[in-house]
Every structure is written in C-alpha cells, then in structure tokens.
Amino acid sequence: MSDPNSQEIPADIAKMSFEEALQELEKIVEKLDSGQVDLDQSIDIYTRGSLLKQHCDAKLRNAQERVDKIVGKNGNLSVEPANVE
C-alpha cells in the first residue's frame, strides 16, 4: 500500500546521496526561517523540501534494512538482521 501523501521523487533528487539531500534540505529550512522569501517562493521551496525529506526517509529505511547485527554464539560469529524498530 502506498502512502497517499508521497509524491514522485524528481530525477535530480533521486540521484542525490543522503548527505547531499540533507544538505539541501538544511538550506531550505534556513531560507524559510529567514523570512526573506515571498509566499510563492516559500511554497515552491517547501514542496521541494518535502520531496527531499521523503527521499532522505527512503534512504534511511533502505540503510536500516541492510544493517546486520553480528552476534557471538559459543565463540562463533553469526550474522542476523538487526532489530532496529
């Protein structure tokens, strides 16, 4: 089931690393906090910020799924999926 609030991520955002997207998101927050942008620009950059946040959330979920926990059992190491929830 897809999230009704999610939007298609534009290609320029989809190719960003987590760090790049987070950095741009931080710049957007600074602009919005400054109060130096007009209403139309605020709406546009808020929308882009929402897409960046959605992209970052997906990147974090993907990373979380890949995390493995190394467990020592009787001197032997084994790998099992991390319980990160």
Rank of each mutant, 00 (worst) to 15 (best):
K31D: 11
N83Q: 15
M1R: 08
I43N: 10
E24W: 02
K53C: 09
L52M: 03
L25M: 09
G72L: 15
E8Q: 09
P81K: 11
A11E: 11
G75H: 06
D3K: 05
A82Q: 06
I13H: 01
M16R: 00
N62G: 11
I9G: 01
G35D: 06
Q23M: 09
I13Y: 00
E24K: 04
G75L: 05
P10A: 04
S17K: 01
V84S: 11
L32P: 00
K69Y: 11
S34Y: 04
G35I: 03
K31N: 09
D40P: 04
R66H: 13
N62C: 11
K31W: 07
D40L: 09
Q41A: 11
K31T: 04
Q7D: 14
L52P: 00
I9P: 00
E24T: 02
E26T: 04
Y46S: 15
H55A: 01
E65G: 09
V71I: 12
N74E: 14
Q36Y: 07
A11H: 07
L39A: 13
A58T: 04
L25S: 09
K69C: 11
R61Q: 13
S34K: 03
S78K: 09
E80Y: 05
A21F: 00
Q64S: 15
E80A: 07
P4C: 06
L22H: 08
